[in-house]
């Protein structure tokens, strides 16, 4: 297994500007030093509450938002060092599927144009072959290829997400970033789409960076899981390891919040107090300290580092 994507200490800050002169008075630290890698043919799940920066991680990896600090190395190339032309070429190998299938399809284009515009633009196929390619990809994602001249508004949510998947596949990518790709769908449709993701992974030899807030979805699709809190990864482990042996108190709280289908089974919950604190603040210690059930004095002064505990299990907590 070789490493496809390597993310080194990326930070993505958004400046907050005020006043007539638009002076910078602070930063929203959406991603604050995130480190991980993605192997070929692997699915890395990123899970966390809303506002923890998981979508920003996805966009930063693709350089849709360039990182404030740190580097993204994809297929051995540092994306920061590529010029515009090289970047356009590189983008073909890393695609994205967005959360809202109603917003991520251009309403003025037919499905055929949506799917085949990029390959034609990059010269992968001839303009006269667009119909064949569109039909083929629509078959792959489970859409009737007879509908290739229809427009996005003529499809349902699940069908639209399939169009998004076909669009992402059209450039024959190595990696697809799925940013809450099933969150906007009904549960029954979610299952279909997740199965489709799995099948396509084999067929197209794909790696996924799967971003979701849904532990159930993450558990189904991922090989490894990263848990994010306030712009940092607090725990990263193999799926099985993480779900059976969570070490970070935040991960434990998330896992205890998964609803069980069995009403008889009583479960000890560890509900978290309060909300995700503001990402604009500076934290002298652990950002999770004020909500943590295991907090001790040291937590508010020592910044925990992500440390390897063996078994490919990394945790960022001084109490573990």
């Amino acid at each position: 297994m070789s490493v496809l994507l390597k993310v080194n200490k990326i930070k993505t800050y958004f400046p907050i500007r005020r006043g007539l002169l638009q002076r910078v008075i602070g930063h929203v630290k959406a991603v604050d030093g995130v480190d991980f890698h993605l192997n070929e043919l692997e699915t890395l799940g990123i899970v966390g509450e809303s506002g923890c920066g998981k979508s920003t991680v996805g966009k930063t990896v693709l350089h849709l938002i360039p990182p404030t600090e740190g580097e993204v190395i994809f297929e051995g190339d540092n994306l920061e060092e590529l010029n515009e032309k090289e970047m356009q070429q590189k983008r073909m190998h890393m695609q994205m599927i967005f959360q809202d299938p109603y917003m991520s399809l251009n309403p003025r284009l037919t499905v055929r144009e949506i799917i085949t515009d990029a390959p034609v633009y990059h010269g992968l196929i001839d303009r006269k072959d667009t119909r064949k390619l569109a039909m083929k990809l629509m078959d792959f994602v489970g859409l009737s290829s007879r509908q290739l001249n229809r427009f996005p508004h003529e499809f349902s949510g699940g069908q639209r997400q399939r169009i998004c998947i076909a669009r992402a596949l059209s450039l024959n990518p190595k990696m697809i970033i799925c940013d809450e790709a099933v969150s906007a769908l009904d549960v029954s449709i979610q299952a279909q789409i997740l199965n489709l993701f799995r099948d396509l992974q084999q067929e197209f030899k794909l790696s996924y960076l799967f971003i979701s807030h849904d532990m159930g979805v993450i558990r189904f699709i991922s090989d490894r899981v990263a848990v994010m809190y306030l712009g940092r990864i607090v725990e990263l482990a193999e799926k099985k390891e993480l779900f059976t042996n969570p070490l970070h108190p935040y991960t434990k709280a998330l896992l205890s919040a998964i609803p069980l289908p069995d009403p008889e089974q009583k479960k000890k919950r560890q509900p978290l107090q309060g909300e995700v604190p503001s990402p604009t603040r500076n934290y002298p210690g652990c950002p999770f300290a004020e909500r943590c059930p295991m907090v001790i004095e040291e937590c508010s002064t020592t910044v925990p580092q992500l440390t390897e505990l063996g078994n490919n299990h990394q945790v960022s907590c001084i109490r573990v």
């Binding site: 309403p107 003025r108 037919t110 499905v111 390959p119 992968l124 196929i125 072959d129 064949k132 390619l133 039909m135 083929k136 990809l137 290829s145 007879r146 509908q147 290739l148 001249n149 229809r150 427009f151 508004h153 003529e154 596949l169 059209s170 024959n172 197209f204």
Partner: peptide, 21 residues
């Protein structure tokens, strides 16, 4: 691989008409 092995046998399909905005 996506593009190289495009099926050749699907020529005579009738397509549904889309209604643009």
């Amino acid at each position: 691989s996506t593009i190289d092995n495009i099926d050749k046998g699907q020529e005579n399909v009738t397509f549904e008409k889309g209604e643009s905005l």
